[in-house]
């Protein structure tokens, strides 16, 4: 247990990095995923096609390979980021956006088609229809799956630990190596840190769900 308490500052450092990476990637993925979902339901065929290819390509690729691409391959073809943190952020956002897109699209599909038809009938454009009528209703429906995706994202940030981002998992490896006798307590400590992030997200999710629920 000493290995944990004498290294609380390292745990805190890793915890903060994991938290930042999660929040930054979640925000970017939410925006990107919503835009992609709009593409997938848009009347323009090429946008629909782009959205479909993106989702199928990205969500069927292992996250480690996405990381590998942004850290090792992209710089060779001239795509550079200022730091490995930024590369990890980009990789996680692009990966998670595919899942967000599918969740939001399912939400859009759950909104009765009559809503969109009525909006178009009173002269709203496609973008206005989506923004003002469909998406606000869609997001209420998809709160639980979105929180699911963000909990998965929190855990996925651990992949960044193998790619030069010193977050919880990397700290865990460092402490496990320097305290060979206390490997199990050290790793349990790391697991608890992830729970501190994910369990409140779940609670928040059910609270938000109750708040935004609407009767059909």
């Amino acid at each position: 247990m000493d290995a944990i308490f004498s290294n609380l500052d390292l745990y805190w450092q890793g915890f903060r990095m994991t938290l930042w990476l999660t929040l930054a990637s979640a925000a970017t993925a939410l925006v990107l995923g919503t835009i992609l979902a709009a593409f997938r339901v848009s009347p323009v065929a090429s946008l629909r096609w782009f959205g479909t290819v993106y989702v199928e390509l990205v969500r069927n690729t292992p996250l480690t390979i996405v990381f590998f691409f942004f850290i090792f391959v992209a710089p060779q073809v001239g795509i550079r980021t200022p730091s490995f943190f930024v590369s990890a952020w980009v990789a996680l956002s692009i990966y998670t956006a595919a899942f967000v897109c599918e969740a939001v699209r399912s939400g859009i599909n759950s909104v009765g088609v009559g809503q969109a038809e009525a909006a178009r009938a009173i002269g709203l454009t496609f973008t206005q229809t989506l923004q003002l009528i469909v998406l606000p209703q869609a997001f209420r429906t998809v709160v639980p799956p979105l929180i699911n995706i963000f909990i998965a994202l929190t855990k996925n940030t651990s992949v960044a630990g193998g790619f030069a981002v010193t977050e919880l998992f990397a700290i865990g490896r460092r402490l496990a190596n320097s305290n060979p006798a206390d490997v199990i307590p050290v790793l349990i400590g790391i697991g608890v840190c992830y729970l501190i992030l994910t369990i409140p997200s779940g609670i928040l999710a059910s609270w938000v769900e109750r708040k935004v629920v609407f009767a059909r």
Binding site: R174, A176, N177
Partner: peptide, 29 residues
């Protein structure tokens, strides 16, 4: 990450910015 050289850098050359990968060969590219 977790290696003796990494620890030595932290102890004796704290001004260097460490980038820590999982294997030495990951650093080559």
């Amino acid at each position: 990450e977790g290696s003796t050289p990494a620890q030595n850098m932290r102890d004796n050359y704290p001004d260097a910015n460490l980038e820590l990968f999982g294997a030495y060969s990951d650093c080559l590219e």
